[in-house]
Amino acid sequence: MTEPRPLGLPSFAPRTSLREQVADALRAAVVAGEMVPGQVYSAPTLAARFGISATPVREAMLDLAKQGLVDVVRNKGFQVTEVSGADLDQITEIRLLLEPPAAAAAATVATEDDVAALRPLARAIVDAAAAGDLIAYVEADREFHVRLLTIGGNPRLVEIVKDLRAQTRLYGLAGLAERGHLADSAEEHLRMCELLADGDAHGLEKLVRIHIGHVRHEWAGDDS
């Protein structure tokens, strides 16, 4: 069995929410394509990379298994669940139905505090793109969009979108980062903040629709 390639995973200090922190980091690694189908990942090996015990890692991986992101390999560890192009097409179709109008709704009710809370996340996305830190990019991107949609006041929609985003695979991110193109998509988040601040519902809806198109094609490594 070949050894897993090194992953750019962070280290954590022990906290009561350690299991959730590990799950978030591993989920981002799966979505970003840092963890790939066909490779077995053991809890002890991942725990050593995090600098923590294996228990919260194993628990986090079981949480991801319940979400359908990984499969349990008996007595060995976990494998990332394969996602087909057809799966990504269906996920994108649903996201396009939900997210652009929800973002438009957010633009009609957003406060200055709402916009102020999003700006640091947008900047974190830009910084992660510049550094080529794919896991940090995916995590900041997820948090940004969840907070944006939350402003609209429909928590059920937000939960559905969170699940759909977790099932997405962005295998094209590494190539975009290497070519210096990831920064272009990152900058879109700063523009979203401006549109939100201006209350431009139509402009924000249009930009979010374009942004999701990136996810299916350039970000997923599919230029078709």
Rank of each mutant, 00 (worst) to 15 (best):
C193K: 02
V146N: 11
V138A: 09
L176R: 12
P6W: 01
G199T: 10
V208Q: 01
S11T: 09
V22K: 06
A129Q: 03
G203I: 04
G172S: 03
L98T: 06
M61S: 09
E82I: 05
G33V: 00
F144I: 02
K76S: 15
C193Q: 02
G152E: 06
A186R: 06
S84K: 01
Y171W: 04
I94K: 14
G68V: 00
H181Q: 15
L97K: 12
P6N: 07
V36G: 15
G38K: 08
V138T: 04
P100N: 04
I52D: 05
A60H: 00
V73C: 14
Y171D: 03
E99V: 08
G38C: 04
G68R: 03
A186Q: 07
A103G: 13
A54N: 10
Q79G: 15
M192R: 03
T2M: 13
I52R: 03
D184I: 11
A13S: 15
T150F: 03
H189W: 04
L204A: 04
A54S: 15
R165D: 13
V40A: 15
I52N: 05
A29T: 04
A220V: 07
L173N: 04
E82S: 14
A197E: 13
L176Y: 03
R49T: 12
R179V: 08
L164V: 01
R179G: 02
R15I: 01
L207H: 05
P6A: 10
A86I: 09
A129H: 02
T150E: 12
R179Q: 11
H211V: 01
A183K: 12
M61K: 00
E159D: 14
K76M: 11
G85T: 06
R179D: 04
G172W: 00
V126E: 14
D223H: 13
M35L: 08
A129S: 02
I52M: 04
G203P: 07
R119M: 09
A110R: 00
G33D: 01
R169Q: 08
T45P: 07
T55S: 15
I210K: 13
W219Y: 11
L98C: 09
L195V: 06
A129M: 07
R156K: 10
